[in-house]
């Protein structure tokens, strides 16, 4: 359920981000509390809290004392921009590396992508 290639609290933060990106948590909506998240994911509450803390620090979530954490206005667009930057590093670069190893040139690769999109 959680990406184990990353520290657990980072995976927790990314899972909440995914929920914001796909609209599960709309802007101004509440996200699960630390304890709810810990119980659901079966992880230590401190880890869950650290994951949420990352998102507060990044301005993705807003803490309202005594009430809970809410998705910040504009968080979805900001996340999408940030993920686009990471996309190049995480997906395009390895794609090109593997293509080069297989002797697939840029033109052939572009054709393959166009064909796949049309499917």
């Amino acid at each position: 359920m959680l990406d184990d290639s990353k520290p657990l609290f980072v995976a927790v933060a990314e899972q909440i981000e995914d929920g914001i990106l796909d609209g599960s948590y709309p802007e101004d909506a509440a996200v699960p509390s630390t304890n709810e998240l810990a119980a659901f994911l079966r992880i230590n509450p401190a880890t869950a809290g650290k994951g949420l803390g990352l998102l507060v620090d990044a301005g993705v979530l807003i803490k309202r004392r005594g009430i809970g954490m809410f998705v910040a206005p504009g968080a979805r667009a900001a996340l999408r921009e940030r993920r686009k930057l990471a996309f190049e590093d995480q997906f395009i670069a390895p794609l090109l590396r593997e293509a080069a190893a297989l002797g697939i040139g840029p033109e052939e690769l572009a054709n393959m992508i166009t064909k796949e999109v049309a499917r």
Binding site: N35, A38, A39, R42, I43, N44, P45
Partner: peptide, 11 residues
């Protein structure tokens, strides 16, 4: 046991 431990520890 894990679920009870986590839940009660949180509260």
């Amino acid at each position: 046991f894990y679920d009870e431990l986590l839940h009660d520890f949180a509260e």
